[in-house]
């Protein structure tokens, strides 16, 4: 099976889970029932129950709510901020490019995870704050990719030809360069940003303190909550661990496929 098919199946499953979770009639508190703690998978509980007797399958489904919408916000912020700055630098070149690249370099020199933790510590660890911070942390990579792609294309013969055909400058930049010639590159970075937010969120909620808190499920806190419980249900921690891995793999595979479809790798 191709990387694209596997990637789309994995991410598709995540999105379907998210859609179901948005309408699911599941109460995270009411589901606690010590009489059915750590049950093995059965027809009634497909992935068994955790040590508080909560249905693991339901919580796995609901855990997708912890990251899907914020990760989309992360991708949007990375795409808009990085894309706009990169386009500006790549199109105009000269001192503007020098300035923007300086900004990218400074931005990229701060470890992304540290930056997100710092933002969370300063502005509070709301999912929106973490998502925007992660998006900003990913923006330099998007921007540098767009900048180098445009820098190499803006002097290309076909761009001169478009100009000679009377195509307006704004259309050359927005449509011919950004949309036609850089969207695969941008999309690949956005998949990476989406995957990175998932890693950020699950890591934070795994460590506790930041991120989604019990009893609201997140794949990270499910893993932390159940791992190492004596006589526990192994599915209760393996399922979220596998889900994290599968979702990140999905973003990576789709990103890789986009990179190949576009041929040259602009950075």
């Amino acid at each position: 099976m191709s990387a694209r098919a596997v990637g789309m199946a994995l991410l598709g499953a995540v999105i379907v889970a998210w859609g179901l979770a948005l309408v699911a009639p599941y109460d995270v508190v009411a589901d606690v029932d010590p009489t059915r703690a750590s049950l093995a998978p059965s027809l009634a509980h497909w992935l068994g129950t955790d040590h508080l007797g909560r249905d693991v399958a339901w919580r796995l489904l609901l855990g997708s709510r912890a990251f899907v919408a914020p990760a989309l916000l992360t991708a949007a912020v990375a795409g808009i901020v990085g894309g706009a700055a990169g386009a500006l630098a790549g199109w105009f070149g000269g001192p503007i490019a020098a300035l923007v690249r300086y900004g990218f370099t400074v931005g990229a020199s701060v470890p992304r995870f540290v930056f997100v933790l710092l933002a969370g510590a300063i502005f509070g660890a709301a999912p929106t704050v973490l998502a925007v911070a992660t998006g900003l942390a990913c923006a330099p990579a998007v921007g540098e990719g767009v900048r180098s792609r445009l820098d190499e294309l803006r002097r290309a013969e076909f761009v001169l030809a478009l100009r000679a055909h009377g195509v307006p400058e704004a259309r050359i930049l927005l449509h011919h360069l950004l949309w036609v010639n850089a969207r695969g590159l941008v999309l690949r970075h956005l998949f990476q940003a989406f995957g990175f937010f998932l890693v950020v969120e699950t890591t934070l909620s795994y460590l506790g303190g930041f991120g989604v808190q019990e009893p609201t499920p997140s794949w990270g806190n499910m893993l932390a909550f159940e791992f190492g419980i004596p006589d526990g249900n192994a599915f209760a921690w393996m399922a979220p661990a596998l889900a994290i891995w599968a979702a990140v793999l999905g973003t990576a595979l789709l990103g890789q496929d986009l990179g190949r479809a576009e041929g040259a790798d602009g950075g």
């Binding site: 013969e157 076909f158 010639n181 576009e262």
Partner: peptide
Amino acid sequence: DARAALDPLR
């Protein structure tokens, strides 16, 4: 070079 004058991705 007519080929270079065409957009390679369209």
